[in-house]
Design a protein around this nucleic acid. Structure first.
Ligand SMILES: [Zn+2]
Ligand SMILES: [Zn+2]
Ligand SMILES: [Zn+2]
Ligand SMILES: [Zn+2]
Lengths: 166, 166
DNA sequence: TCGCTGATGTTATACTATAACAACAAGGTG
DNA sequence: CACCTTGTTGTTATAGTATAACATCAGCGA
């Protein structure tokens, strides 16, 4: 099965995660330059912190991390950075967890679907037109005009299925 | 188009909403009797309050309403009632709003999809197997075992589209 | 240099949810 | 009836998430 619709699959332990972070930061830098956005040191650092792992991270965890940097930080500091990163597609918010995760494809706006492992907390991001379209069709049938889709699926990733069979 | 998959469509102003509330309470009563659950006065009242309108209501709004009843109430009062109602399928939680809405079909467990009007705040509840299934298929293709789907679509309902064209 | 704009600093507060233990009510058992 | 068990509710305190409002600062162009 083609994985063209998977923006970010579940990443195995031991993959080259430094490369994930570097790519995310480089892409953000490029996109900001192209769009005339200011990727300030604070915003870049928050983005880097969000990308520390392939799992959603809470705003107050980010706050603690900023403070560990030695930086003075309070809630608006992190929420404003997140607002910028969300608006410009560098991170997504996971509504069901009140948490934030790096976007695997920030170069174009998209409607994503998330698979969230309840055991290891890792997240996969899909951008599957078939899912979006069938929802759009059903909404159209009711006269509803969609502006945003929130699709978050909880369960067990393949790796956790094997190690924690039910 | 058949509406078999619509558990609760957008309700027009002026419909017989007393009947909606009465039906919801009667159904809850029946289901609780069948299952040996205790629909206490508090739980019944919270369910009735959730059903006051066809839109999601926040826990603290319910709390205020309980206090307006003259009842002494604190957060655990309403959260415990909501926990009971959620566990037994009488209400759903809308993650993207931190709010709760009455379920249109509590007699059997189901995975619902919600359409939420950003203008009038009314909600429609779907139970569309085609949506659930395509998500399940995609998840299967990645080795993911689903335990729960959160599908919340924001936009404009038909009525609001007409009155607030964009 | 001045003044504008956007970003960040800072303080305070609002909103959402749960932990922990006490009191109470209903139903079964002796 | 006295007693116990279980589940529900009362009560106090606190945890967790997010934003309002105003001050300050840095960069940039007039
Ligand atoms: Zn990685
Ligand atoms: Zn996992
Ligand atoms: Zn109604
Ligand atoms: Zn509407």
């Amino acid at each position: 099965m083609s994985e063209k619709n998977v923006l970010s699959d579940f990443k195995p332990d031991g993959h080259n995660h430094e490369a994930c972070i570097d790519t995310a930061l480089a892409t953000a830098s490029t996109v900001c330059r192209e769009r005339g956005l200011r990727l300030t040191p604070l915003r870049q650092r928050v983005l880097e912190l969000v990308w520390q792992q392939h799992m959603p991270v809470g705003a107050y965890d980010l706050l603690d991390a900023l403070r560990s940097d030695g930086r003075r930080a309070d809630p608006p500091t992190v929420y404003r950075a997140l607002e910028f990163l969300l608006e410009n597609g560098f991170v997504h918010r996971i509504e069901s967890l009140n948490a934030y995760v790096g976007c695997g494809e920030p170069k174009h706006a998209h409607s994503a679907q998330f698979l969230i492992c309840g055991n290891c907390n890792r997240v996969a991001e899909l951008e599957d037109p078939a899912i979006s379209q069938i929802i759009s069709e059903k909404a159209d049938g009711l006269g509803f005009r969609i502006s945003q889709q929130t699709i978050e699926v909880t369960g067990l990733c393949g790796e956790c299925r094997e190690h924690a069979p039910a």
